[in-house]
Amino acid sequence: MNNITRRDFLDKGAVSLLKLSLGLYLADAAFPWPAHAKEDQSIFDNFPIPEITSASEHYLQQIDLKPAVSARKWRLAITGEVKKPLELAYYDFNKIERFSILNTLKCIGDPVGGKQAGHARWEGVRLRTLLRMAKIRSTAKDIVFHAVDGYSDSIPAARALGGEVLLAINMNGKRITKGHGFPIRAIVPNIYGMKNVKWIDRIEVTSYDYQGYWQKQGWSETAEIKTFSTILKAGISGAKSPALIAGVAYAGSRGISAVQISVEDGPWENVILKPAMSKYSWNLWAYKLESRAGSDVTVKIRAVERNGDVQQKGGWLARAYPDGVDGYHTIRVTDDI
């Protein structure tokens, strides 16, 4: 169980939200406010948690060293069950219609309360566009992403043709860094990070069910992100002031209708919830905990989906293997005032 003192809140100042220029096609219209979200949203002004995660703060995960790829020499091949195999250079992507999406990524191996999650705006071209250019065959079953470092994973062809899977070249308005997959990475909404393959140099269309790197080791093939809620900040801004407990919650396109907190195993209370920026965006949330001088307080958090389903309880001993962890993030807040 994590120990976070109320003074941890002072570690970082306010974080400005990233604002990107308009003009790109967006597939992510903002969600309407949940019915209960009538609270004063001013608490999210100068909030200590950024709604958009910078490239430097966004989690990174790979099976080997980050490969160095030259934009000038790099090529993307599209092969397999297509009538017209393609080979594209990096700068060919400037000639194809751009698409932008806000998306939350999370590592399937992230434990309860872990920080291997991030929310960013990705820009590139629809995978569907390239598959149509290659004249994908009706026999297609899986779309396999092959990476420069030898990693591979796949998604069903039906999902790839749905229109929201992206081959991203930019992150938050800037060229994707080497760590995040330069020159091209996949962004597959609703799916854990392992299928959002980085450093792609070949896309193979197969007529069979392809088993990727992690599937061969028993991890989930569908890899749908489970609902999660995480406490990222627990702090106090001054003596005898209420402590701010804050974090993020996400349920994929299922959406979040409420985030709830329990203090000292008491009844569940709704926290203040900020509407999500898009259907694939996480929600920021906040709760003001009254000061209890001289005592420590245990708090736990859970999320409720828009259809009323409550996040799975799981437990601290729950394992991420094979399809992601369930559990309520629980911390002990130390009152040292």
Rank of each mutant, 00 (worst) to 15 (best):
V197L: 02
R254I: 04
D45M: 03
K95T: 10
G294S: 09
M194E: 13
F47V: 05
K95E: 10
P34T: 09
I191V: 14
I63H: 08
I301L: 15
V15F: 12
E123T: 15
L317E: 12
D11S: 15
T298S: 15
V82A: 07
Q211V: 02
S207W: 00
K178S: 11
L26Y: 07
I225W: 01
A29P: 11
D149W: 01
I256N: 11
S154I: 00
L284F: 06
T104G: 02
G324N: 02
I272Q: 13
N3K: 12
S262D: 06
D326N: 11
A117Y: 14
K141Q: 05
I63A: 08
V188R: 10
G181M: 11
K135T: 00
G150Y: 02
G80Y: 05
G266E: 05
L130Q: 04
D92M: 02
N190H: 05
R319G: 06
D209G: 03
S138M: 04
S278T: 07
N283I: 09
K240Q: 11
I143H: 01
L244P: 07
L105G: 11
D142W: 04
D209P: 00
G109K: 07
E269H: 14
K174P: 00
R132C: 02
W282C: 09
I187A: 14
V259P: 12
G114F: 06
L166I: 10
A186C: 05
Y328L: 01
V148G: 00
V125E: 00
R332H: 06
K174Y: 01
K12Y: 14
I49R: 08
L22D: 12
K300A: 13
D265P: 00
G124T: 08
S152L: 01
M194A: 08
L317S: 10
A234G: 12
N307Q: 09
T298R: 15
